[in-house]
Amino acid sequence: MKVRIALTVNDEVHEALVPVHKTLLEVLREDLALTGTKHGCELGECGTCTVLVDGQPVLSCLALPLETEGRRITTIEGLADGARLHPLQQAFAELGAAQCGYCTPGILLTAAALLSERPSPTRQEVKEALAGNLCRCTGYTKILDAVELAALRMERART
């Protein structure tokens, strides 16, 4: 059974006719061509497919588009402000926090949600916030460093 849905993704409304059982992950990638959202298990066990729904990190592999209609979806393609990178994106690039880069979109979005809720997190708080995103390349060290750097820069920009 197909349904017509209207999703608000990165502040743009997308209409699509999709089967009910197609997950948000699949619709983003396959129907909206937003392939920045990656996937590592499709069972909620790795965090790779994280997107923000109303600012909160959720797993797009376990969400139905029907259930996210009328809510604000943010994917990695929507993290930058136009051509201006989010401070997290800048810090991740500068510090080598993305190696293979496959977990990076999910981690950036999770970290962005953290920083909007808690602008100056401790390292332990960053670890806890990112505990649902597996990375096999970095040992997380540069990722944590980059989140801290971005937080610092955002803090400075505010004052």
Binding site: G36, T37, T75, Q89, Q90, F92, E94, G96
Partner: peptide
Amino acid sequence: LPKVDAWAKVVGETRYADD
């Protein structure tokens, strides 16, 4: 220095095989 492919990776533009 940043990796030359870092920028594409942080904005989600890197095209992996399944993309």
